[in-house]
């Protein structure tokens, strides 16, 4: 579903990532780790078409990102749920509308999906906060709202960039549990994190592979984690 073939990316100056090859299999669970600034966020952006590789090929659902039109990218994003570290919402709309935003922009009526939305908010524990505005939410609530927004279209892949970066341990466990549940439902998950504790906690519940970015390369980390 997402394939990177000999991908390199450079920001003006030197190369940040080079000769990266990876194919995400449906239903797999990946952690992406590495020191800060190693290129985890860049790697994820390559995975959802926010960046085009400087060389090599990135394929989203079989289509080369380089040849995709802006509308193609938009349609592909409906099949990829993204959770950013600094989640952004439409601050003037309540949480429920923000979570339903992917449905709104894709022209699917939120009335039909009303029950779905309610269920989803219950699942992430935000029923009480449905009418709050995003700036009123705590860090953990924002992350959970972002996760709900990322999965409402029932995407094939969920990419999460440091989803537990701003939350305490208990909240990070809750988020991890939600992501593991999604994986059990058949979703492909990729979580970028430098929190090794989180990776260890996940390993007892799910068959997770750990990828590590170092020296511009992507490595499969050993079982020693």
């Amino acid at each position: 579903m997402i394939e990177l073939e000999n991908v390199a990316y450079s920001y003006g100056g030197g190369e940040l990532l080079s000769s990266i090859t990876l194919a995400l299999q449906p239903g797999s669970f990946h952690f992406l780790t590495g020191p800060s600034g190693a290129g985890k966020t860049t790697f994820l952006k390559l995975c959802y078409g926010a960046l085009v590789p400087t060389s090599g090929h990135a394929r989203l659902f079989g289509a080369d990102v380089r040849g995709m039109s802006r509308d193609d990218i938009a349609l592909a994003r409906r099949r990829v749920g993204v959770v950013h570290q600094d989640v952004q919402f439409l601050d003037h709309l309540p949480v429920a509308d923000n979570v339903a935003l992917p449905l709104t922009v894709s022209g699917r009526s939120s009335i039909d999906e009303g029950a779905n939305l309610k269920e989803l908010l219950t699942w992430v524990g935000l029923t009480e906060r449905a009418d709050a505005l995003p700036p009123e939410l705590s860090g953990g609530e924002r992350q959970r709202a972002a996760l709900a927004r990322a999965v409402i279209m029932s995407p094939d892949v969920i990419l999460a960039d440091e989803p537990t970066g701003n939350v305490d341990w208990e909240m990070s466990q809750r988020l991890l549990t939600l992501l593991i549940e999604l994986n059990r439902m058949g979703k492909t998950i990729m979580i970028a994190t430098h929190d090794l504790g989180l990776i260890r906690a996940a390993k007892s519940h799910v068959q997770a592979r750990v990828l590590r970015i170092s020296n511009r390369q992507l490595h499969l980390a050993g079982a020693d984690l």
């Binding site: 509308d71 994003r77 993204v82 952004q88 935003l101 992917p102 922009v105 894709s106």
Partner: peptide, 12 residues
């Protein structure tokens, strides 16, 4: 930016 991220087309 948020709209692009959640898959809104330019025309929308």
């Amino acid at each position: 930016q948020v709209l692009r991220l959640v898959g809104a087309r330019d025309i929308y």
